[in-house]
Design a protein around this nucleic acid. Structure first.
Lengths: 230, 230
DNA sequence: ACAAAAGTGTTAATCTTACACCCATGT
DNA sequence: ACATGGGTGTAAGATTAACACTTTTGT
């Protein structure tokens, strides 16, 4: 079979982080080409002998110096033929979450100009990256309700109020504090630690930890994580 | 930017059909190459100036002569570098449903040898198509519970018992007949027609119709289709 | 003593489950 | 009259939603 195909394949990653009650995305500034100085998602072309997964992880490391906490394939963007002005590019987009403590370390990225942008204060994005980002945001909102991925945005030990705010912020709705705590605790996948919060005001709060192993065990037996409030 | 990339991009479609209480998949027999006579999913390479969507629809028409009722992107398979023995191919897999009345028309496909296989009686499949199929099956099972896609597998007018059997068959579980009917009807997205079933035995049954427009309206207002029984 | 956030229970309403008998037709 | 599948209701249990006051700390 003869086959002349002139389509390039790339991967892009939407990396979400959460800190100070704000959801942020990691963007990098393009250094070359026609799109110089525009902000874009982390991403690049796939090498001939590299899996898609390896490609994303490589780009995450090369361009932003980070290792993510959660990574999954999001969607493949290939219906807009001119999404890249240079030539036909199909992009396999990935959805990633990082622990919020890593948001502070932004500066360690030297080669590229990488920055966290609160989701409500985005710059203009290159290519169709705005579309990709919207798709990712919807995925995050959906998935948050039926998989325990919120914990991948928090430090290992976190306050209940942080978890609650994370849900409120990302889902953009109010959640009853008592009902939320009751429900989450009823799952039995979160445990109290002996540590207390380093807060400055108000009553000190216990720190909690997500027990992933326990979750995996329960999930295997058919347990369904599900957070869904009016 | 110089870019030498030798990866080909293909699309594959998993087409599900439902008839006589059996879920089936459409497969075609390879006519050329090293995989001659092996059964495989409908699919092929994407053309330079063709969207991914156009590519799948073209292949569906060319190889099987069908138009599907529902089509969505499933997953992009690119982590197994040797999935195609000829060269590196990344495949964007699509998930499709056809109206069960179309299952009878199989014969109209002339150029290729296309056939419906009950999901429980699959032949050996080419490439990694078995993996793709499994992914699709999981998607079908999940999606059936939270989106009204079951109707895309049935004729326009259908018996309640067909709908119920479809759910039981695909989800592989028993569902209480009364509770099922009650719940589905409570959504208000299914309407009775004036027609009755052409059945040979038992009490004649009303035919029902899915009101997609009404569903879309409700969905816009936040209504969530949800079928989930013990 | 006051401000700030943490922690905690109860009740009504809704939804889910389990379950069995009669009905309309063809033979 | 019988076989076959269609059609229907109710009650107990589980889950969800709504709601407000007390506790602990720092200032």
């Amino acid at each position: 079979m003869k086959l002349e195909q002139n389509i390039k394949i790339a991967v892009d990653a939407i990396v979400f982080g959460y800190a100070d009650n704000h959801l942020s995305v990691l963007l990098i500034k393009q250094k070359f080409g026609e799109l110089k100085n525009q902000w874009a998602l982390v991403g690049g072309f796939v090498k001939d002998n590299e899996t898609l997964n390896d490609a994303v992880n490589r780009e995450l490391k090369e361009e932003a110096g980070i290792k993510v906490n959660y990574l999954e394939q999001l969607f493949t963007f290939g219906d807009n033929i001119d999404r890249d002005p240079r030539f036909r590019v199909i992009s396999v987009a990935y959805f990633a979450l990082v622990n919020s403590t890593k948001l502070v370390l932004t500066a360690d990225t030297d080669a590229e100009d990488a920055k966290w942008f609160p989701i409500k204060e985005l710059p203009t994005l290159a290519f169709d990256h705005k579309d990709i980002l919207n798709t990712a945001l919807l995925r995050l909102q959906n998935k948050l309700t039926y998989q325990p991925i919120g914990f991948d945005l928090l430090p290992k030990e976190f306050l209940f109020s942080d978890l609650e705010n994370l849900y409120c912020t990302i889902l953009e709705k109010e959640i009853d504090r008592r009902n939320f705590r009751k429900k989450i605790l009823s799952f039995g996948i979160i445990e109290e630690t002996d540590n207390f919060s380093p807060k400055k005001s108000g009553r000190p709060a216990k720190l909690f930890r997500f027990n992933k192993l326990k979750y995996n065990k329960l999930a295997k037996d058919g347990f369904l994580f599900d957070i869904n409030f009016a």
